[in-house]
Amino acid sequence: MADLFEYGYWGLFFASFLAATILPFSSEAILSLFVYSGYDISVTVAIASLGNWLGGMLTYYLGYLGKWTWIEKFLRINQAKAEKTKLFLQNKGSALAFFAFLPVVGDIIPLGLGLLRSKPIWVALFMAAGKLCRYIVWAWITLQIINA
């Protein structure tokens, strides 16, 4: 992680991008390191949010590319049951993208929304809002700890 810090904002962007994929990686530690080191907090939050959002959208797109034959075979999800769930989520499922920042399930949410073919524009907007809120709160908590 320290290696990514040496690349400045590009390292933060890359760390945030990786953290939004299925790969286990923590961008919060790098964000805290940037805040502690005196980097501009607004730029730091914006870059971390952008990288994390793009990583989440990549995961959504990979889910969107998924084929039902693969899903039934490897994930053991029945297409009829998934279609019923899709109808239920059709008008409100995209809002779940807001919670893509959550640990563990957060990486699965965009993938699932992609598999269910949720509307990309709403997924993108809700996901961006959730990730931005998460990094704002994380940066604020880091500042509170530093100033304590």
Score class of each variant (00 low, 15 high):
Arg76His: 14
Ser49Phe: 01
Asp107Trp: 03
Asp3Tyr: 13
Tyr64Phe: 12
Gly66Asn: 04
Asp107Glu: 09
Leu58His: 07
Trp140Ser: 12
Gly8Thr: 10
Trp70His: 11
Arg134Glu: 00
Tyr9Glu: 01
Leu65Cys: 13
Lys84Met: 13
Arg76Cys: 05
Leu113Met: 06
Val45Trp: 03
Ile108Glu: 02
Phe14Glu: 00
Val137His: 02
Ala100Gln: 06
Thr142Leu: 07
Ser94Val: 01
Arg117His: 12
Ala19Ile: 06
Gly51Arg: 02
Ile109Asp: 05
Arg134Ala: 10
Pro103Trp: 03
Gly8Asp: 08
Ala2Arg: 14
Leu132Thr: 14
Ala82Gln: 09
Leu18Arg: 01
Phe126Gln: 05
Leu143Pro: 02
Ile22Phe: 14
Lys84Arg: 14
Val137Ser: 08
Leu143Thr: 11
Leu111Ser: 04
Gly51Ala: 03
Gly38Ala: 11
Ala95His: 08
Leu23His: 02
Ile121Arg: 12
Lys92His: 13
Leu33Val: 13
Leu113Glu: 00
Leu89Tyr: 04
Ser37Lys: 14
Ala95Cys: 05
Gly93Gln: 07
Phe88Lys: 14
Asp40Asn: 15
Gly11Pro: 00
Ala128Asn: 00
Glu72Asp: 10
Ser26Asn: 14
Ala148Cys: 04
Leu4Trp: 09
Val105Leu: 12
Phe98Cys: 08
Leu111Asn: 08
Ala100Pro: 03
Ile30Ser: 09
Ala95Trp: 10
Trp10Leu: 15
Ala46Thr: 12
Ile145Asn: 01
Ile77Ala: 11
Thr21Met: 07
Met1Tyr: 03
Ile141Leu: 15
Pro24Arg: 06
Ala95Asn: 00
Thr69Leu: 01
Ser49Gly: 07
Asn52Tyr: 06
Asn147Trp: 00
Leu102Val: 09
Asn147Thr: 10
Ile41Glu: 09
Glu6Lys: 13
Ile145Gly: 05
Leu125Cys: 05
Gly63Gln: 05
Leu111Arg: 01
Asn78Arg: 12
Phe14Pro: 05
Asn147Ser: 15
Gly114Lys: 01
Gln79Trp: 07
Glu83Gln: 14
Asp107Ser: 15
Tyr39Val: 03
Trp140Val: 13
Phe14Arg: 02
Gly11Asp: 08
Phe5Asp: 10
Ile22Trp: 05
Ser26Met: 05
Pro120Tyr: 13
Tyr61Ile: 11
Ala20Leu: 04
Phe74Trp: 15
Ile41Leu: 07
Ala95Glu: 06
Phe98Pro: 06
Gly11Tyr: 02
Leu4His: 08
Arg134Leu: 08
Tyr64Asn: 11
Ile77Gln: 03
Ile30Phe: 09
Ile136Lys: 08
Ala100Gly: 13
Leu18Ile: 15
Ser32His: 03
Gly114Phe: 04
Gly93Thr: 09
Asp107Asn: 15
Thr69Tyr: 12
Asp3Met: 10
Phe88Cys: 01
Gln144Arg: 11
